[in-house]
Amino acid sequence: MDFYANTVRRMAVERYPARHLTQRIMRARRFIDRHYHQPIDLAAIAHQACLSQHHFIRCFRQHYGRTPHQYLRDVRMAHARQLMKEGWTVTSTCMAVGYKSPNSFSLLFRQVTGQAPSNYRKAIFDRQARSRAWTIILSPTAQGSAPCESD
């Protein structure tokens, strides 16, 4: 960049520091959203925002109402629930969303959702099976005949 562009950027930061800080925090959040399945530590996330770790935690909590660690956990759990709805096993889901230990994943999942991942997965498949059963029962072609017409 040339001198003029750098000067304009510096003046914008000096004049609107909150907006500049918000952009940094949003950049870090996008980093979490893109890399949730990888091992991420606080230092890497804070580096994305170009802030110290302690200042980053305070700013992130101020903007999003939770710490970066809580946000990362919530993003991982949301993706885990979606994968289990798609039929993934608990162990494969655990590894796919960035946890290395199925035991720690199960403990966190239970804390967030109130039920064990295996029970959550079973409940999903039970609901889907009931839904399919009702679809078959209510389907007019399920009994091999067309719907009745009144004369």
Results as ranks from 00 to 15, higher is better:
Val112Asp: 12
Ser52Thr: 12
Gln143Val: 13
Cys148Leu: 15
Phe125Trp: 07
Leu138Ala: 09
Tyr64Asn: 00
Val8Gly: 02
Met84Arg: 01
Ser104Lys: 08
Ala96Val: 04
Leu21Arg: 04
Thr113Ile: 04
Ile40Cys: 10
Ala116Lys: 04
Arg110Pro: 08
Arg30His: 14
Ile137Pro: 06
Arg29Gly: 03
Pro117Gln: 06
Lys100Gly: 15
Ala129Ile: 07
Ala44Cys: 08
Val90Leu: 02
Gly65Ser: 07
Asp151Ala: 07
His69Lys: 12
Val75Trp: 02
Arg132Cys: 15
His55Gly: 10
Arg61Glu: 15
Arg121Thr: 05
Glu86Met: 12
His37Asp: 13
Arg132Phe: 13
Ile25Ala: 03
Gly87Gln: 02
Leu138Gln: 12
Arg15Glu: 13
Trp88Tyr: 15
His37Arg: 12
Asp33Thr: 06
Asn6Leu: 11
Pro17Tyr: 03
Glu149His: 14
Ala44Gly: 12
Ser145Lys: 15
Thr89Ile: 01
Ala28Ile: 06
Ile45Gln: 02
Arg81Asn: 05
Tyr36Arg: 02
Ala5Gly: 07
Leu42Gly: 10
Gln23Lys: 08
Val112Asn: 06
Arg110Met: 04
Thr93Glu: 00
Arg121Ser: 08
Ile40Lys: 09
Ala78Val: 04
Gln143His: 13
Lys122Ala: 15
Asp41Tyr: 09
Ala44Asp: 14
Phe3Cys: 14
Arg19Tyr: 13
Trp134Pro: 04
Phe31Ala: 02
Arg110Ser: 14
Ser104His: 04
Ala44Pro: 06
Asp2Tyr: 06
Thr89Lys: 03
Met95Asp: 11
Gln82Asp: 10
Met26Ala: 13
Arg76Leu: 00
His35Pro: 02
Leu51Cys: 10
Leu107Val: 12
Asp74Phe: 00
Phe109Gln: 03
Asp41Pro: 03
Leu72Ile: 05
His63Gln: 09
Gln70Val: 05
Thr7Asn: 10
Arg61Val: 08
Trp134Arg: 14
Ala12Tyr: 12
Gln62Trp: 07
Ile57Asn: 05
Gly87Phe: 07
Gly98Leu: 03
Gln62Cys: 07
His63Asn: 09
Arg29Pro: 02
Gly144Ser: 02
Met1Glu: 13
Arg132Ala: 15
Val13Trp: 07
Asn119His: 14
Ile40Trp: 06
Ala142Cys: 06
Arg81Gln: 12
Leu107Tyr: 10
Leu42His: 05
Ala28Leu: 02
Leu138Trp: 11
Gln115Asn: 06
Ser92Glu: 09
Met11Tyr: 14
Thr22Pro: 01
Ala12Met: 11
Phe31Thr: 01
Arg66Thr: 11
Lys100Val: 08
Ile40Ser: 07
Arg130Gly: 11
Tyr4Val: 15
Met11Glu: 14
Pro68Glu: 02
Asp33Trp: 03
Ile124Tyr: 14
Leu72His: 07
Gln111Ala: 11
Val97Lys: 02
Thr93Arg: 00
Tyr16Ala: 08
Ala142Pro: 04
Ser139Arg: 00
Thr89Met: 00
Met77Leu: 05
Asp33Tyr: 01
Lys85Pro: 05
Arg24Cys: 14
Val75Asp: 05
Ser106Ala: 05
Glu149Ile: 14
His69Pro: 04
Arg73Ile: 10
Leu107Lys: 08
Arg121Gly: 04
Phe31Tyr: 06
Glu149Cys: 12
His37Cys: 09
Phe31Cys: 02
Gly98Cys: 01
